[in-house]
């Protein structure tokens, strides 16, 4: 991504704000600046739409993963059983 500076924020800041928005962690001020940037920057518009789509896909898939503790327990169990064979 080339770093186009358009109205107060550059592409990397716009992208960061876009990422934060996916987790509802961007402030209103940040959002306004990002939206202004998007008006003038095609690359960031593309990133933003892909990024939003990714959020929707993840929500839709309803993925659930196991905890790290559980993984650790499994790793140890397998290692033990495997060497016992």
């Amino acid at each position: 991504m080339n770093n186009k500076k358009t109205f107060l924020v550059d592409c990397s800041e716009a992208a960061k704000c876009c990422d934060k928005s996916q987790y509802k962690e961007s402030s209103i001020a940040e959002k306004v600046k990002m939206l202004l940037h998007l008006v003038f920057c095609k690359n960031c518009r593309k990133y933003s739409s892909n990024n939003t789509r990714l959020t929707k896909l993840i929500e839709k898939s309803n993925i659930q993963t196991c905890t790290e503790e559980q993984k650790k327990a499994w790793r140890e169990k397998i290692k033990k059983e495997f060497t016992d064979i």
Binding site: I63, Q64, T65, C66, K71, W74, R75, F82
Partner: peptide
């Protein structure tokens, strides 16, 4: 087997849950 957890546990968990 020593790679099972890293490679497949999330996938297996998601399948099961």
């Amino acid at each position: 087997p020593n790679k099972w957890v890293d490679r497949y546990s999330d996938y297996l968990f998601n399948y099961t849950i």
